[in-house]
Structure formats: C-alpha cells, structure tokens
Design a protein around this nucleic acid. Structure first.
Lengths: 340, 340
DNA sequence: TCGCCCCGTGAGAGCGCTCTCTTGACAACG
DNA sequence: CGTTGTCAAGAGAGCGCTCTCACGGGGCGA
C-alpha cells in the first residue's frame, strides 16, 4: 500500500496498467466487457497504487452523492429509556453499508434546525432521506416528495402517499391483551401513551380491538393516558387503582411506564402477577431486569431500520415513486409479571 | 423559489446577474472585494434561481468534503441505558451544523466493519474523524493520525499524542466519596465498572483518591467490580452486603448499576439513605426517577460532543497537528439517596 | 471474398466549481 | 502627461471522474 502525498487518480492507474482511463473506470465499476487479462492488470495497478475513487468527482458526473440523510428529530432521540435510537440507526447503517452508501445524520432540535435540515435535503445533497418520526405531524416528508426526493418514514407518517415502515403496534397490543384474557383476567386496564403519537394511539386501538373481539365492553375507568415516562406510568397506575381497585391486569404501552406501574402496584399492596398481571411494550432491557421480570411486546427495531434503508435504496436506484408500506410483526415475550 | 428540473448552476446565476462565474463565486463565498451593487445583483439572482452550490463540484476543487466521520463502535452504542449516545451526537451535531459540516455516522459492529470503516476514513472521504471510544484499545486513532487525518477522541484514548476530550471521571468520583465522608459515613463501599475502560478505572481511582486524602485505609472488602448493567449492580451489592454487612454508604460507578444496588439494598432490609447512602454516576433520567431518587455525578455529555467537534474543526482549518486534551468538569447532584 | 456485427478499448467532452492570472478603470503622484 | 498602484471583475484552466461515441479487429453468414 503506497502512502502517496496526493491520492492516486484514475489517470495514474491507467498509465501504470498501460490502458486508458475508461478501461480502469470499467474495471473499478465492475463492467463485464473487459478482457480477463486487462482486468487483472488493472486490478494489480489499483492495488499497487492504493487507488480509491474520488467520491466528489464521481458524484459530480453521476449526480448521485452515495449518501442518504437520516433525520431524527430531537423528541424521538430523547424519548426512550430503552435504546431505540442506536438500534434503529444500527439497522439503517447495516443496510447502507452493504450498498456502500454513507449515513448523514441530521438531528434538528429547534424549528430553525428543521428549516436548515429541510433546505439541505431539498438541495439534493443526498440521494434520499430516511425520517424516523415518532411524534406528531411533520411537513418534511411531503415537502421532499414534492421535490422528487425519495423518502421513507419509520413509524406511521401523518399523511398518505409516503412509503413507510412500521411495527405492528396494534397487533402487538392486541396479543398482549388476548394473552391476559386467555389467562382468565377479566378487569384488564391499560396505560396508553400520548394519543398524538401513532405508537400511542395504535397500541390503545389494539387494546380496544382485543376486548372487542372477546365480546367485552370497553370500560373507560380502566383506561389511563400517560407520557411514556416512568413517573407517568407510576401515577397513571395510582389513578387506575384508585378508580378501579378490583382490576386484575394492566397492559402498559411502554416498558418504562410498565416499571413505573410495577412500583405503584407494589406500593398499593398488590402482588404481581398474583393479584395483577402486567405486560409492557418494547421489550427493552429494562423489562427483563424489572422485579418481577416484565412480560413485553418485542418490536424488531433493527429490522425496521434495515427495511427502511432497503426500501429507500430501491427507490433511489429504480427511480420509481410508488408509495409502499411495510408492517413488521411484533412478538409477545412472556415473563413472570403475567404468569400465575 | 424556482423548482427547476435541474438545479441552477453558478453559470446560470452569472448569466442572470450579468456577471462572470468568478464574481458569483466570490459573492457566494463571502469574498469582500465585490462592489456593493454587484453583490446585491448577484444575491438577487441567487435567490431568484434558488441557487445552492453543488457540494461535489466544490469538494473536487477545494479537496475538502465538508463532512466529518463520527465513529461509534457497537459496544459504546449499546452500553448505556441512559441516553449517552444521542446526547453526545447531539453535541457533535450542533457544533458541526454551526460550521455547515455534515456528520457521517459510522457504527462498526464486527471486525470486518472496523476494517471497512478504517479504509473509508483513510481514503480521505472526510475532513476529519471523531471517535467516541469508551472501551478498550483501538488502533484506529493512531492509524488515522499516521495518515495525516485529523482525529479527536471522546473519552481517554489508549495511546498518547491524540487530541481528546474527556469528562473528569476521577474528580467526579472523588467528590461523591468526599460527600459521603463529610456526611459522617465511615464504611464507604464502591461498585466499580470494568477496569479495562477508562470510565471504569478512573472512577475507581477517584474513590481511592478521596479515601486517601481523608487518611482512610483502602479496604478491599468494600470494592466490587461489575459491568455497568443493572443486574451487575444488583449482584455486586449483594456480594458487598454479604462481605461487609456494616457498610453505611456505597459509591456506584453508574446509575444503572446504582438502581440495581438500590433494589439489592431494599431486598437486604437496608433503608436508603438512613442505613446506607448511595451515589451513582451519569445523572441519567433513571437517577431522578429511582426510589428513592438517586444522587449522582453529572457529566456534560453534550458539551463533550460539542468540544470534540470544535477541536476537530480547528485542526481541519488550521492544519496544525498538536495534540490537545480537554477535561470537562463533572458535578455532584444530591438527591434523597444520600441525604439524611 | 465481402459486408456486418460485436466486443474490447480509447479519445474526449464535460459535470460545477474554485482560483490564479489578467485586464481595465480610475486615482494619485511626480 | 505619463507612470504606478489599487480595486473590481473576467477569462480560463483544471479538479477526477463517467459516459458516449468512435474505432479496429475478428468471427460469421451470404
């Protein structure tokens, strides 16, 4: 490996291999119609000179940057005690690395940042955009789509016509509640998340769905809304206990809130799972480490990231703009908190 | 704002403003020696055409990519229950955005990834590299430095001669222990982190330091090593209680372990803070939400990221290669777990 | 044998920008 | 009035790459 002052260029490789720039370019880009011996000569020269293509020069002519923007708004980054953020990035990073694409991370915090980020993306400096949007309405995906820039959203987007990947929050919640009912629980309460977030409302919808299909009435006394925080879960559980002291199970829309609920139940003299069964959501490390270990709904976060990136790469390369949606299955993980 | 099929070029702006490309370039790049009226004419044309400079073309001639690589190895990304990862990225992102630089995120997971990442960075596709390295030895910073690529490490790096930013783990730990001693505690134990991580060993060193300056002997019975996990903290606390039932305080090297310790203490029939005072480290959201709320050592994570990025930008623009080190102060946050 | 096609390769344009060098206008000075 | 200096602006090269088109030669059918 040569450590030249200035990196080797195509030109230099061509000279060393006694061929033209065009031929080296073909070899480097895997064009098939190059004779075997020329190819190996070029490859040797590439190795000798430690040649690495200059991305800027390449981008200039191909009009592709080889990078995608990943937008994670501040609230999403901070929201979770469980490592949602690194996991989704890991999945995205994996899929992009496989295609030699770079991940340009954008974390707008204030409105001014969002505008700056929007301008940057709209300027076409990236080949496509991944938006991990777990909170309310965001005009960004529509804006970008209008400009013809490929976008994939993680989590259900506010508007239709956008390609997105989501986990099956609704089914996951329904499975949890079905499990509680099958276990013989009859007063199944829920602590739901904020209703302006799809992850909040979809999980509550799943709760309703499961009760509905079991032919059970919805009792509003058994529903509390909290903010996905530990303390929020704790106080919601206290309110539920005060209103409905005879509840025998609770489905909590996040593990963090679930841990809060657990401590409120214990403080209220309830034994888990004997008196009250508890199931959380996320299957974060917290769940397994709680006392008692918390049953939870597992969501395939890395896979969501990977799927997002793959969909985007497809859009970028095929240039088709048909909106697609992918819903990834969730899975119920049973632990002591819901076992008799 | 015009939505042209193809983005406007310098050439087009020049024609619209009736000047040469060079003049437009001067205006766009803030060159002073342009007459006021020409400048405003150009600015108007830029606005009319929605002109945005093409980064690839610019990079090609300036030989600067306008982006920095941020390397976060897998263990670091996953390690913390507290949002270390998003916070340091936020700090970095802030500082880079202020300089219009892009953040290219690289998360090597397996050895093969590390090699790929190393090659990518060494190829000069970025102007500099930030490495958030909280685990053991990593050859990457030295390799990059050898190639003349600016590097700044977050956390204490294994080898000298590298610019880095770290938080004052040692002093933070010492402050915590000093506080416990000042409170009249005499049997102060510690649950330390892995000793192959600077954050682990430095915090243990701070514990030793505080006992030493108070003229107290080190009792090996009062020291346990754990792995920064909740469960690790719990079992370490159990072992400590078994070995030294009369301990009256414990400094725990992370909040996650601190929460584990708290539950082991409660299970062991100790009241916190009356029987045993507890202080954690990180001041993560967990600490405030624990029962009782956990005293902790706060570290300025965002500031660390910001400082790293600023140092790097300085290296990139000034082209000087003097290794510098910045140690950021930590702060003791007292809550109920260490108050009588 | 000729014409045609295909395959491997080369020549050369040009992507959008920066930057050096040059030019022209004008003022100041001897 | 000529010379010099200064400042604004333009001309043009060239960064490293891809891609279209052209070209030569060999195989093959007519």
């Amino acid at each position: 490996m040569v450590r030249a002052e200035t990196p080797a260029t195509l030109e230099e490789v061509a000279r060393a291999a006694n061929v033209s720039r065009a031929t080296v370019s073909r070899v480097v880009n895997g064009d098939r119609r190059v004779r075997e011996d020329t190819r190996s000569a070029v490859e040797a020269a590439v190795r000798d000179l430690g040649y690495v293509p200059n991305r800027a020069a390449r981008s200039l002519v191909t009009r592709r940057s080889g990078s995608v923007g990943v937008v994670i708004p501040e609230p999403t980054a901070q929201l979770f005690g469980d490592p949602f953020f690194p996991r989704v990035l890991r999945g995205i990073g994996d899929a992009l690395a496989a295609e030699e694409m770079q991940l340009v991370l954008l974390m707008p915090q204030v409105r001014a940042d969002e505008l700056r980020v929007g301008r940057y993306l709209a300027a076409g400096h990236v080949d496509g955009v991944l938006l991990v949007s777990l909170h309310g309405p965001d005009p960004l995906p529509d804006e970008l789509r209008a400009r013809g820039i490929p976008v994939v959203v993680g989590g259900r987007p506010p508007s239709a016509g956008i390609t997105y990947v989501d986990v099956d929050n609704r089914r996951g919640a329904a499975m949890a509640v079905e499990h509680l009912l099958a276990d013989g629980r009859r007063q199944v309460a829920t602590i739901a998340g904020p209703q302006d977030m799809p992850a909040g409302s979809d999980r509550l919808a799943g709760y309703h769905e499961a009760l509905g299909s079991a032919g059970l009435p919805i009792n509003e006394q058994l529903v509390e809304i909290a903010d996905f925080s530990l303390e929020g879960g704790r106080s919601a559980m206290e309110r539920l206990l005060a209103r409905a002291p005879r509840l025998d199970a609770v489905f909590v829309a996040s593990d963090l809130m679930g841990v809060g609920a657990l401590s409120a139940l214990q403080a209220g003299g309830r034994s888990v799972p004997d008196d009250v069964a508890v199931i959380g959501f996320d299957d974060s490390p917290l769940a397994a480490q709680a006392q008692p270990p918390l049953s939870s709904v597992r969501q395939p976060i890395e896979e969501m990231g990977r799927e997002m990136a793959q969909l985007l790469i497809q859009m970028v390369t095929s240039r088709e703009r048909v909106a697609r949606r992918v819903i990834l299955a969730t899975e119920l993980v049973i632990r002591a908190s819901s076992r008799r």
